[in-house]
């Protein structure tokens, strides 16, 4: 009797093990495969030594003409393109070290930045970028393309830039330039 019970329990156990095996090891498994062409920027591990630096080019306004002017800046090599891009935008918001003009309201903060596989960087600014903005067409254009050109110029995995405010899509910064689509860089605006 006890032996039979044991035998049945043993059988049950084996049955379960077999079931588990069948469940996990057979059948058509849906594989989550990353797009083969474009690596996820978030997951793109960069061969960086701790403390390693990279150089990025940031674009500011100048008093002498209407073009954007480049300024080199060192940032931490970091572990991903997203981290680097975040630092680049943060440096941009800190302003120029060479006396160029920052086309951002000084209160502006970067809230979030992420990059899609399709190469669109979503850059989320605090509401100051709208509320404190000068709101003229020229001011809007320089604010937008300072960010867009700085990101697209330095990071190959960023092709377009979508500007968000407080995590949301906003129609314009000050009533002129549409923010409803991601921007391609406009290198014509950069001083030769």
């Amino acid at each position: 009797m006890d032996r039979k019970r044991l035998a049945i329990l043993g059988f049950l156990f084996v049955f379960l093990v077999v079931l588990v095996f069948i469940f996990f090891k057979t059948g058509v498994r849906e594989k989550i495969k990353p797009s083969p062409l474009v690596p996820t920027p978030e997951s793109m591990e960069l061969p960086a030594k701790p403390g390693a630096k990279i150089e990025v080019v940031l674009f500011f306004l100048s008093e002498k003409d209407t073009y954007l002017h480049s300024e080199k800046r060192e940032i931490d090599a970091g572990v991903s393109v997203v981290r680097q891009a975040k630092q680049a935008v943060e440096e941009l918001l800190k302003g120029s070290q060479l006396g160029y003009i920052s086309p951002f309201p000084p209160e502006t903060k970067l809230r979030e930045l992420h990059v899609t596989r399709g190469g669109v960087a979503y850059v989320d600014f605090s509401k100051d970028i709208v509320e404190e903005h000068l709101s003229g067409s020229s001011a809007e254009i320089s604010t937008i393309y300072s960010v867009v050109n700085s990101l697209a110029y330095n990071f190959d995995s960023i092709k377009r830039v979508f500007i968000l405010i407080e995590g949301r899509e906003k129609e314009t910064l000050g009533g002129h330039i549409s923010l409803s689509k991601p921007f391609l860089p406009l290198y014509d605006l950069i001083a030769k």
């Binding site: 306004l61 100048s62 008093e63 209407t66 003009i101 920052s102 086309p103 000068l134 709101s135 003229g136 067409s137 020229s138 001011a139 320089s142 604010t143 002129h176 549409s178 689509k181 921007f183 391609l184 406009l186």
Partner: peptide, 25 residues
């Protein structure tokens, strides 16, 4: 419109038309 810029000295008229860039998609 009337313009404004972060450049203190910015002055003069500008006339804009739509950039193709925005609509290439």
């Amino acid at each position: 419109h009337a313009n404004s810029s972060y450049q203190k000295d910015a002055r003069g008229p500008e006339t804009y038309f739509l950039s193709l860039e925005a609509t290439d998609e």
